[in-house]
Design a protein around this nucleic acid. Structure first.
Ligand code: ZN
Ligand code: ZN
Ligand code: ZN
Ligand code: ZN
Lengths: 162, 162
DNA sequence: ACTGTTTATGTTATTACATAACAGATACCG
DNA sequence: CGGTATCTGTTATGTAATAACATAAACAGT
């Protein structure tokens, strides 16, 4: 984690392993409840993303996948696609990275959903926030546009890094 | 332009060359007014993006840059960065592509600005819409987050492709 | 015009990100 | 158990973006 901003990034806290295990179990339940399989590579990919608790690059997952040596890219990209479909992770377009969905943090199952993100350019932290988008919905309606997915990402500085 | 959607994409209209020339002249004026140079590679890059009138991949610009043979990537990526800074084009994160700013279409000079986009997954068309984002601004404030740039992209089907 | 300084471009090479294609294994269902 | 669908392993390739350094053009002051 390189930075030249004159302050530390201790405020980017990680999840303890108990909390991660809980999230993984819950993810397995959620998949099985929908007739989907939570396989080893999917679980491992989710584990690595949860461990970071911030947006992670696909190739970071690839590099850390095995204790010794990297995974093959398709293994991880397929797992990422699956986890995203299940609503367990989100892709951050402006970072080419993936982050665990915060909608599950409190133990509730959450269907795949659009989310907005506050992304710190200094410490790399991410906060998922729920927003409605009346204006763009209205603009879309006015244009006869049928919206399927919305990407909303705010880049800037978090409270601790300002 | 490949598609298997059962309808044509004639509704994706291009700009005629007179209109493109006008936009290029205006871009030059806008740069010079700010003490920036509108050089040949920058102008050529903008021309290619205006010609498409829809989001264009960087490597499409690279391939078409010279009548015979491609440009080198840094040439085009540097031009793209410049044009984006000048507010003449926007980067579409979810497509890894660039589109001309529509704020200049009516002859007005427009400062660099955030914009939202309606992006058709079928015909590839793009519509730039102006929106304010009270909810995310509010969420950011509540979190002590200082927003610098916002990406807002709606993917779906345009009126003609629904 | 001369000269130092800044800004932009040319060029080579490399790094980062993502998917196609197909073979093999595993789960699931009747 | 056999057939089918789903998932994984593997190789190779395709696509997107930048690092690093050399060259050239513009600019400002003399
Ligand atoms: Zn979420
Ligand atoms: Zn921060
Ligand atoms: Zn614009
Ligand atoms: Zn369309």
């Amino acid at each position: 984690m390189s930075h030249a901003c004159g302050h530390d990034h201790d405020h980017v806290h990680t999840l303890d392993s108990g909390r991660i295990d809980a999230r993984l179990s819950e993810a397995r339940r959620l998949c099985e409840a929908q007739g989907e399989r939570m396989t080893a590579p999917r679980l491992r990919t989710l584990e690595l993303i949860l461990s970071e608790n911030a947006p992670v690059k696909a190739y970071d997952v690839i590099d850390r996948f095995h204790p010794d040596g990297a995974a093959k890219p398709p293994t991880v990209y397929r797992a990422l696609a699956f986890l995203e479909q299940m609503g367990l992770i989100h892709r951050i377009e402006s970072l080419n990275a993936f982050v665990a969905c915060q909608g599950h943090a409190d133990g509730k199952a959450v269907q795949p959903h659009a989310a907005a993100f506050l992304l710190c350019d200094c410490c790399g932290s991410s906060e998922e926030v729920a927003v409605s988008l009346p204006e763009i919905d209205q603009q879309a309606s006015a244009s006869g546009f049928e919206t399927r997915r919305v990407t909303l990402e705010a880049r800037g500085l978090c409270k601790a890094c300002r």
